[in-house]
């Protein structure tokens, strides 16, 4: 239990520190790299929570494809640096206050509802394995899976149309 706690808090520290690094770094490239660290830490949490398929999908889809796309666009636009002052002066204090309220509320609910969340102590060894995921996906969720393919097709067409440029339109 103690070693688990140490492991949890170390990983949580990495994840939160990387998220804060993304929030406060002035350079967009650094922000993207911090976000990759965060995704990696969360992927380790997934492995720990008996979700190996999701963990590896996280690394390849988020850490790989999505973040490479982000870095590519940042470097394509050369838009690493941005101004630091907002147009509305009270925006920053208001945002910090509202976020704190959200955080305190969420933590309060988690702490007070702790007793109602009863976790299963041990799960079957095949839980979350690619076989298990595949069987549930293609039996129970086959329609959402097909809708997903349409969604990806629409996104692809949308991206092509948007980035085609003005001259050819």
């Amino acid at each position: 239990m103690t070693s688990q706690l140490i492991l949890f808090f170390t990983l949580a520290l990495v994840a939160v520190a990387a998220a804060l690094g993304m929030l406060f770094s002035r350079n967009a490239v650094y922000a993207a790299l911090f976000l990759i660290v965060n995704f990696g830490a969360v992927a380790v949490f997934y492995l720990w929570l008996n979700a190996p398929f999701i963990a590896l999908a996280q690394v390849t889809v988020y850490g790989g494809a999505i973040m490479v796309l982000f870095l590519f666009v940042i470097m394509l636009l050369g838009a690493e640096q941005t101004g630091r002052t907002a147009a509305i002066w009270w925006l920053q204090p208001a945002a910090i206050f509202l976020s704190l309220v959200l955080l305190v509320e969420a933590i309060y609910i988690v702490v007070t509802q702790q007793g109602t969340l009863q976790a299963v102590e041990t799960v079957s060894p095949t839980f979350g394995s690619p076989v298990d995921i595949g069987e549930t996906l293609f039996r129970q969720y086959v329609l959402p899976f097909e809708v997903t393919s349409i969604l990806l097709l629409v996104a692809m067409i949308g991206a092509i149309v948007l980035s085609r440029g003005r001259a050819q339109r």
Binding site: A119, G128, D132, T136
Partner: peptide, 11 residues
């Protein structure tokens, strides 16, 4: 998903 041993959460 882990707590309730429900693979739908992972889906």
């Amino acid at each position: 998903a882990r707590a309730y041993e429900a693979v739908s959460g992972q889906l």
